[in-house]
Nucleic acid binder design. Structure first.
Lengths: 197, 197
DNA sequence: AGCGCCAGTCAACGTTCGGTGACTTAATGA
DNA sequence: TCATTAAGTCACCGAACGTTGACTGGCGCT
């Protein structure tokens, strides 16, 4: 999305930041393979060569984007007894997708980016590292207790799977409003059970 | 995997079938974008042009592969009260990945292929159609009852998410044997709860 | 044996990709 | 005002992709 046709003021830091944000937006809505350097460059209104210059390689850009996202830890702030409901609401209703700069879904952004690029061989290394450091491990630490790693995997699995199912089902568009509410309710219960139990 | 260096006997049907199987294997272990026509062709020991000739386009080949897989309905054969445990075992332990021609994971193959290519923009259309026709809908029908679609989404979500988590965690290699068992047990319980409840 | 058909090959096309190095242009300090 | 530095552009590379059309060679039929 080109925001302005006027020539960008020559400010390396600002441009670098703009590239990072454009890339973040792209990686939020397309997989690693489907995001092209030229796409990101066009969004910023800059030549693609500049991205290589600032960030090195595409993979480095991807890492920088992931680092720029809020830590997965933020998923868990809020009362523990609401965890399931908060997450379920965030996934079933629209706050996940849009990926605005500071929207309600900001805390989901890192996870969303990871989900988008699941299956991309080129991004696998980065993904595995990041998903552990930023998502599984914090979640397990937050859950606590002896079986925390196991329960974290389960909770994360349900969250990821539902987010993907949402993609596959085009935002659960085939479900009516009451069914959607029921889906959110049931997901909240299941999720809460996974971390409480 | 080239099985034989001797020139393939001139049999269009057999060759077509061989291409289909090689493609199925490829799509099982790599995403749509990461599977190249030349890769498949090399596996069969045939020129890539032949695939275009037989199947039309890459997307058509992908559709043909999905059609050649067992219907998702097969996931559900077996006693209903074992559903959770069967699926959990299949996902936590190794039967999903290998994707041999007639292995125990054969019934998971269609789902696995779908999961691999989640996120690929080029495969999205096919994926959405297939995942509904072959996976969500049969599962909902099997579950039955008023909230079947909702519960099917949840069960499918957990299954998909755990399968993906398995990818991200390199086969849950960081978990010990007892933790793995605990993971399978908890997943079985959660899954069973989603369809029974 | 000769012929025609068809499975399969080959070389090439046009595109797109990520990345590089040389260039131009704008801002800055003396 | 002018030279220097850094920001940004431009043309291009080599590789990979899916796909095409012309070609080749072996098989079966008469």
């Amino acid at each position: 999305m080109v925001l302005c046709d006027a020539p960008r003021p020559r400010n390396a830091n600002a441009t670098r930041q703009a590239i990072l944000e454009a890339a973040r937006e792209r990686f939020c809505s397309d997989s690693y393979d489907d995001v092209g350097m030229r796409d990101v460059a066009r969004d910023v209104g800059v030549d693609a060569a500049l991205i290589s210059r600032y960030f090195g390689s595409k993979e480095d850009l991807f890492v920088a984007v992931l680092d720029s996202c809020k830590n997965g830890r933020d998923l868990m702030d809020g009362p523990r007894e609401d965890f399931g409901e908060r997450l379920a609401r965030e996934i079933v209703y629209g706050e996940v997708m849009p990926c605005q700069d500071d929207g309600a879904g900001a805390k989901m952004r890192g996870l969303l980016i990871l989900l988008r690029s699941v299956g991309s061989a080129k991004a696998m290394d980065v993904m595995q590292r990041t998903s552990n450091n930023r998502f599984f491990d914090p979640l397990a630490a937050w859950i606590g207790g002896p079986d925390a790693p196991v329960r974290a995997r389960l909770a994360a699995g349900l969250i990821m799977g539902m987010a993907i199912g949402r993609e596959l089902s085009d935002g659960y568009s085939s479900l009516g409003e009451t069914q959607k509410a029921e889906l959110a309710r049931r997901m909240a219960v299941a999720l809460q059970g996974l971390i409480d139990n």
